[in-house]
């Protein structure tokens, strides 16, 4: 009897600190599956964000460093420019990339840096207690918008893929989701393409992953994935933007 599905080699056999039903665990694993498939583990450098995934380096079994809040694309730029033979990828959340790190992501994309960014969008600040993020939906309740996000006071949800897709430096921008197994497989394909683009030297690639955060959505794991599949994809349509 053959094993047809097991733990990828480049993920450590360690329990994560993520809440039950959190999408981060799935995205971590998918990245490791791609790394194993492409055989790039020995020359890979990952950059962990500030946010729930801040200790991602405890789970990935390859070189990972840590950047200040939102500065992942800047650190990735530095590493890639000084070590151009390495594969460099950044892992960021919506508070990290969409709020404090907006300048870094836009300019790294606009410069067409040959890096890969995996952007996990779960519409809230998970680590700090479920506050409103730039990607929070209108009417969505969070710790800082107890009666729901209002456009008049808080603005519109930030669509990062659409925003970056108009920049000439961007080689690839796709939005995927991990709310069901079929979409996890599509997410894997997208992440693989983003890494392949870097290997080919095509330029900046970003994959936005819609991910459930059951704890701060105030839903059960099952309802959270349903919410991602039904509500979140309406505001953030899946697909290739560039």
């Amino acid at each position: 009897m053959d094993k047809i599905f097991e733990k990828p080699e480049s993920i450590r056999d360690k329990e994560t600190h993520y809440c039950p039903g959190c999408g981060h665990g799935i995205v971590h694993r998918v990245i490791c599956e791609v790394v194993d498939d492409l055989g790039i583990r020995e020359k890979l450098i990952g950059i962990a964000p500030v946010g729930c995934a801040v200790i991602a380096y405890d789970y990935w079994d390859f070189d990972v460093t840590e950047a200040a809040h939102g500065r992942v694309p800047a650190v990735a730029t530095g590493i890639k420019r000084s070590l151009p033979d390495r594969i460099v990828f950044g892992y960021q959340g919506d508070g990290d990339l969409g709020a404090i790190g907006t300048a870094e992501i836009i300019h790294a994309a606009n410069r067409g840096e040959n890096i890969t960014i995996i952007f996990v969008n779960n519409t809230v600040y998970g680590m700090t207690g479920g506050q409103m993020a730039p990607t929070t939906l209108i009417k969505q309740k969070t710790a800082t918008t107890p009666s729901g996000r209002e456009q008049k006071t808080h603005g519109f949800p930030l669509k990062v893929c659409e925003l970056l897709s108009v920049l000439p430096g961007v080689a690839y921008a796709e939005r995927v989701s991990v709310h069901n197994p079929q979409n996890v497989l599509k997410a894997k394909k997208a992440i693989k393409k983003a890494f392949e683009n870097q290997i080919k030297g095509l330029g900046f690639s970003i994959v936005e992953v819609l991910s459930p955060c059951p704890t701060y959505l105030g839903l059960s794991s099952k309802d959270a994935v349903k919410w991602v599949g039904e509500e979140l994809v309406k505001e953030y349509p899946l697909g290739v933007f560039r």
Binding site: F5, E6, T16, Y18, G23, I26, R29, L185
Partner: peptide, 17 residues
């Protein structure tokens, strides 16, 4: 089909065939 293992966020499931 491995759907259970693909969606598992905590790598608890191994599939044999």
């Amino acid at each position: 089909c491995s759907f259970c293992a693909i969606i598992c966020p905590d790598l608890c499931i191994t599939v044999y065939k």
